[in-house]
Design a protein around this nucleic acid. Sequence first.
DNA 1: AGAGAAATTATAAGATCGTATAACAAGAGA
DNA 2: TCTCTTGTTATACGATCTTATAATTTCTCT
Lengths: 215, 215
Amino acid sequence: MAGVNAGGERKERARFRRQAPEDRRRQLGEAALRCILKHGNAGVSVRQIAAEAGVTQGLVTHHFGEISELVAYAFDIMSGSLLQALMDAVAAAAPTPHERLDAFIEASFSPVLFDRDVLGVWVVFWGLVLHSPRMSASQQGEYSDYVAAVERLLGDLAASEGFAIGDVRLAAIAFTALLDGLWLAWCLNPSSFRPEEGMQLCRNWVKGLRLGAHG
Amino acid sequence: MAGVNAGGERKERARFRRQAPEDRRRQLGEAALRCILKHGNAGVSVRQIAAEAGVTQGLVTHHFGEISELVAYAFDIMSGSLLQALMDAVAAAAPTPHERLDAFIEASFSPVLFDRDVLGVWVVFWGLVLHSPRMSASQQGEYSDYVAAVERLLGDLAASEGFAIGDVRLAAIAFTALLDGLWLAWCLNPSSFRPEEGMQLCRNWVKGLRLGAHG
DNA sequence: AGAGAAATTATAAGATCGTATAACAAGAGA
DNA sequence: TCTCTTGTTATACGATCTTATAATTTCTCT
């Protein structure tokens, strides 16, 4: 009988405070991120995430239907935060295309984004995306938005400084790949280079663009 | 009672052929790779890998002690194959530094390496490396070897063509990051660019190096 | 042919997993 | 104060997990 333990004694249920569904979903999503941060793929577990959020596992099913929906939601939280942070940095920069692009680079290597734990969550998510149509769809949308943002930054730079880029889309893809690759490399091997060096490598790439190194 | 099923009838054990321990380890390692290829993280399971190899789960414990040792072994198989394939391609190229570097680039985008399933295994492994000191140690060694190989290719090119590179190690890190980033991007979004475009982006990077885009 | 080493199977224990659902409690609104 | 909606807990089922180990089989060597 609910509320009564094996010895027949009445056991009170845990007290809780009701929350708006979206607030609770957000709480569970952030708990999921923390679990992945701590345990990698082994942290993707209804019980662990519920415990991290301070609730019971039934709440996960209630709000998300199944664990993969929660993981996809957590991925969306993370993706939205990333693009928002980068756009905020660009918007806060001096309004020349050069300064805006450089603000983008600096933000990419700032401690908020260029953090071993944060990048580790990304790496685990990339592995999960491959086997989740739901997450794959989200990722494709976010990747397109990200590359489009980079295209604008590179296009503005070229127009502002009077040089041509053969294929802006491919250049944006290359720049994005370089950044992701540096994130990955540093995450796996933090001793391989310093954030300042990472920024320099990106600036070098931009210098190459100016010098005509494009298809 | 061993050998007798529930109905009391004597059930013969499965027949098997003994193999040398290293042959069996190799078989299990390759089965592990196939499971990760098919199922991602969900494929990292003693039962699934044993089934894929056509043996029973006791064999995994016998040969590897625990599942994480098998996964690390599979990772080493994969890493060894990668570097070997790239070095073979470079060795088979015409002996000029330019041709050797270009052979490296072409091999990196050849169907053997630039394959959705193969790259998918890498992405999953990257996530696993972060939470496995054993795999992390392996990865660091392999990353160092890979970057050293790239350093030699870039250094030879610069010497051969009479241009200077400010910091060859950082240039090698950047080139490696660009390649890994392109592999990752294509694996997650195969429609974002074609292999030929990927090679071109790498050649563009090299062009930039020649033009002085380095720190 | 037989002994013996060791490769391998079969089985089991204890743990954790995801999902489902009945029951309860919070709290808003009348 | 009471009703009712709905957020949430508690519990359970069936499945899968890893590791351990006794027993069996393969196959080499004498």
